[in-house]
């Protein structure tokens, strides 16, 4: 990857078979019909990768679809991204919408928007600001924070379109972590050391080790200290 000097630049509309590149820059619309390996990838507009994507940094403004697996050190998404397979990344910052059909590994995952993850979301530091209905099969990690913090403009728009809070929540089966703070989350089981629930949570079972706090607007069927 490092000794490769070729760049792939698509401005307008174009396609490539993939390969090894130093930088990949797509402005407009690009299709990559195979695996791609590069240092930096930047997409402004739309991009579809039909193979696997391996990169150091990925920056997406617009939309991007990856049909294979994705591995990167840093990912920055503003817009929407679809991954059909597993995703492993160091740090990821996303504003918009993410759809992952496989498992998702990230050391740091900061997200504003909505996501849908079919597999396990495994993240060291997870910070979610919900702006729409989100889903994950399982969530695991060290520090997990889920908030619904609509920005001013969103809040007003949201109020116009939907009555406040309509289905803007996180739905998942299991959340397991060390430090957990949740708002507007529906889950079957939550397990952790320190658990704090904010408003709008509907949880069937909570198992905590050290501490547990609960907002009066949270619905919890059962909780116990392990």
């Amino acid at each position: 990857m490092d000794n490769c000097i070729n760049n792939l630049i698509i401005k307008g509309s174009g396609n490539s078979t993939g390969g090894n590149f130093k930088t990949v820059n797509i402005k407009g619309n690009g299709e990559i019909e195979g695996n791609i390996e590069c240092n930096n990838m930047k997409v402004e507009g739309g991009c579809t990768v039909y193979g696997n994507l391996e990169a150091k940094t990925v920056e997406i403004k617009g939309s991007c679809t990856v049909k294979g697996s994705c591995q990167a050190t840093d990912i920055d998404i503003q817009g929407s991204a679809d991954f059909d397979d597993d995703v492993s990344v160091g740090d990821i910052i996303a504003k918009g919408r993410i759809n992952i059909n496989g498992n998702f590994n990230a050391e740091k995952f900061h997200m504003e928007g909505a996501f849908k993850i079919r597999g396990l979301l495994n993240s060291g530091e997870l910070e979610l600001k919900l702006h729409g209905p989100s889903e994950a099969r399982e969530i695991g990690g060290e520090k997990i924070t889920v908030k619904r913090e609509a920005r001013f403009i969103f809040k007003r728009l949201e109020k116009l379109i939907t009555p406040y809070g309509f289905n803007t929540c996180l739905i998942t089966d299991i959340i397991e972590g060390d430090e957990i703070y949740l708002e507007y989350t529906k889950a079957k089981i939550i397990r952790g050391n320190n658990i704090e629930l904010g408003p709008g949570c509907e949880i069937e079972l909570i198992e905590y080790k050290d501490s547990y706090k609960q907002d009066e607007n949270a619905v919890v069927n059962n909780y116990k200290k392990m």
Binding site: S88, N105, E107, N122, S123, G124, G140, G141, E142, K143, E176, G177, D178, R191, G192, N193, E207, M226
Partner: peptide, 20 residues
Amino acid sequence: KKDLLELTEISYGQLYRWKR
């Protein structure tokens, strides 16, 4: 998983980190 964590005295976070 629950028994494992109790037996080995590790936390969920550690287990998930090692898995990652």
